[in-house]
């Protein structure tokens, strides 16, 4: 009999988790229910990270195990699973900065918290943010940056959003390396998040307020 995928994956037992998935697929289990369990497990991982029980390596590893599970389940899926999402977020590391770890963690945390995240990657020009906001209609924008040069890129990105007439349609949060409340003021963003959880809290506040 297959063990509990939710707790096994949440406890980061890769081999066991993949074994359970294999057993359940062989037994003809619904692939969607497997993915749903995986999603619930990742929620637990996110919560443990928020509680400082898990750290970055644990997030990275859980994401890797999930990838393995998705690879196994995907061929059995009739069509892409429709998941109800809380809201849309456009995320990226601003122009000139190619650091991705912090941004990836926020993307991960938002994703497991139920948000649809458009990850634009690193070194993202201001205009690309603007285009994605237009295209997706996302009400939340996350600007990530590790280097001090990101102060200016963030400011320019916020200005570009304003110039496109979108400033009152989105809330902008910034985070990463040397960011602070002072930098937030400088860039013209709406909020500064000290860590990944702060990003999720902000998104919840903003989506709830809508």
């Amino acid at each position: 009999m297959a063990g509990d995928l939710v707790s096994t994956l949440a406890d980061l037992k890769e081999k066991e988790a993949l074994g359970i998935v294999q057993d359940r697929l062989s037994a003809g289990d619904d692939p969607l229910s497997i993915l749903d369990d995986a999603r619930r497990a990742l929620e637990i991982v996110g919560k443990r990270f928020a509680d400082s029980e898990y750290f970055i390596p644990d997030l990275v590893y859980s994401g890797e195990i999930l990838k393995g599970i998705t690879d196994m389940v995907k061929p059995k899926l009739a069509k892409a699973a429709e998941v109800k999402r809380l809201g849309k977020v456009v995320m990226g590391t601003v122009a000139g900065d190619i650091h991705d770890i912090g941004k990836d963690i926020v993307v991960f945390m938002l994703d497991v918290s139920g948000y649809e995240v458009y990850d634009l990657g690193v070194d993202v020009p201001a205009q690309k943010f603007v285009e994605k906001i237009k295209e997706s209609g996302a009400p939340i924008v996350g600007l990530s940056g590790f280097l001090a040069l990101a102060f200016d890129s963030m400011k320019e990105t916020v200005e570009a959003i304003k110039a496109a007439g979108l400033r009152d349609k989105v809330k902008v949060m910034i985070g990463g390396g040397q960011m602070s409340e002072e930098i937030r003021k400088y860039t013209g963003a709406d909020a500064y998040g000290k860590d990944a959880m702060a990003g999720v809290t902000l998104a919840q506040k903003w989506v709830g307020a809508k």
Binding site: A148, F151, Q178, S180, E182, I183, Y186
Partner: peptide
């Protein structure tokens, strides 16, 4: 000594 202070303070 914080970078943000040196940059903006």
């Amino acid at each position: 000594m914080p970078t943000d202070l040196l940059a903006l303070g």
